[in-house]
Amino acid sequence: MKVNFTLNNEQKSLEVGADTPLLWVLRDELNLTGTKYGCGKAQCGACTIHLNGNATRSCILPVSAVNGANITTIEGVKSPAADALLEAWKKHDVPQCGFCQSGQIMSAVNLLTRNPAPSDEEIDASMSGNLCRCATYTRIKSAIKDASNTLGEKA
């Protein structure tokens, strides 16, 4: 089918199988490989993108469902929260293998955009869908708190 959507602020128009998960359209058709395949069942969060501003697992999202939607991937995410998070990720040297980190950042941006000063429990609740096999969880949490402080200072 013909699908039209906005991707990282650019209009896209593609001819693609309606049942193709957005993940594979991004990766195989559009060469945006920052969004990862980890499980294909919305269990690990490595494929997290923003669909109309909401963190969404792209591995189970058929492309037919995004017609007319606004999609942001790790390559295009840009906001005060995203900037603060990337800075904090560097400061804490969060990644080990790094494979899940695009998804972690996308979920964290989603959290801080809605709730710039989350509690530990709110961080847990928001980030629990994102697996990290290297278990960088303590640093993810520290970095989110740091970014939250940065946003608070600027506010």
Binding site: N31, T33, E75, D93, P95, G98, Q101
Partner: peptide, 20 residues
């Protein structure tokens, strides 16, 4: 600072899965 933190945070790091 680790040499690969920035690219592993921004989605720019290229894993085998990402080779096109």
């Amino acid at each position: 600072p680790k040499l690969d933190t920035a690219e592993k945070s921004s989605g720019a790091a290229v894993f085998t899965q990402d080779i096109q």
